[in-house]
Amino acid sequence: MRITELFQRGEFVVTAEVGPPKGFHIEHLIEEANTFLKDKVHAINVTDNQSSVMRLGSLATCKVLQEQGLTSIFQLTCRDRNRIALQSDVLSAALLGIENLLLLTGDYTTLGDNPQAKPVFDLDSVSLLHMVKKLEQGEDLAGNPLVGEPPKFAKGAVVSPCSDSVDVQLAKMEAKVKAGAEYFQTQAVYEPEKFIRFMEKAKQFGVPVQLGIVIPKNAGMAKYMNANVAGISVPQDMIEELQKDKEKTKAGITGVEISARIIRECKDYCQGVHIMALGWESKVPDILAQAGM
């Protein structure tokens, strides 16, 4: 199922994310997905060597989730593949029945655990969207015809609504819409007012946007993100909230409360929510329940 069909029906689309392990044993990932995400979310993103850390492949993991009856979203970055490999992998996704894509530029290689790797970036997020659109029209990026019925995907992209350069991000968002983006998932939001202001400007593009949530696990994580992660800023009072009752925070209760509160404050301004649990998949049902989903 393409998640664009859900947006078209006016549904508030709920997605979560799993990160493949550093190895090929994914029993634990499947169990978590079946226990905590099945029937709770519409689809599950599978990250593509997230943060440039080498892991099991996104495409294979998507296929395994599909076999479990789960709808997957294949995340694809430009960091590790040139345009030949990107096109080939997108066709492979079509063969395997994967119909949802999230197309990104990708983090730089030196940020990960194999910093000696060659950074590819033959294409970028915008030209990658354009590339998929071309495949859907029955030809490759160079204009050579495909054999048989062309593939069809829900083409997703990302944007950072709380970036300190939000106007530059909006310009990029517009370029992505023109290149074929049909839905957006955002970087983590901790400042609902900023998100709402962003949505006032973003709604002109007429493309559905899912609010991004990263569950705040503790104050240390929040401070780390403030110092190091682009497009994220956790307000001081939220850091204090995480520090106040350490046992409650450790049990995940504070993070769940904060996440649910952000969703409640933003949900009237967007078309869905995307929860990046980063290992805390077990908290996703509580967040959705508290958010009134």
Binding site: L104, T105, D107, Y108, F121, D124, S125, V126, S127, V158, V159, S160, S163, D164, S165, V168, Q169, A171, K172, A175, A179, Q187, N228, V229, A230, G231
Partner: peptide
């Protein structure tokens, strides 16, 4: 990149 800023600018 030739099509605009990535999400990594802080």
């Amino acid at each position: 990149l030739v099509n605009g800023q990535c999400g990594g600018s802080k």
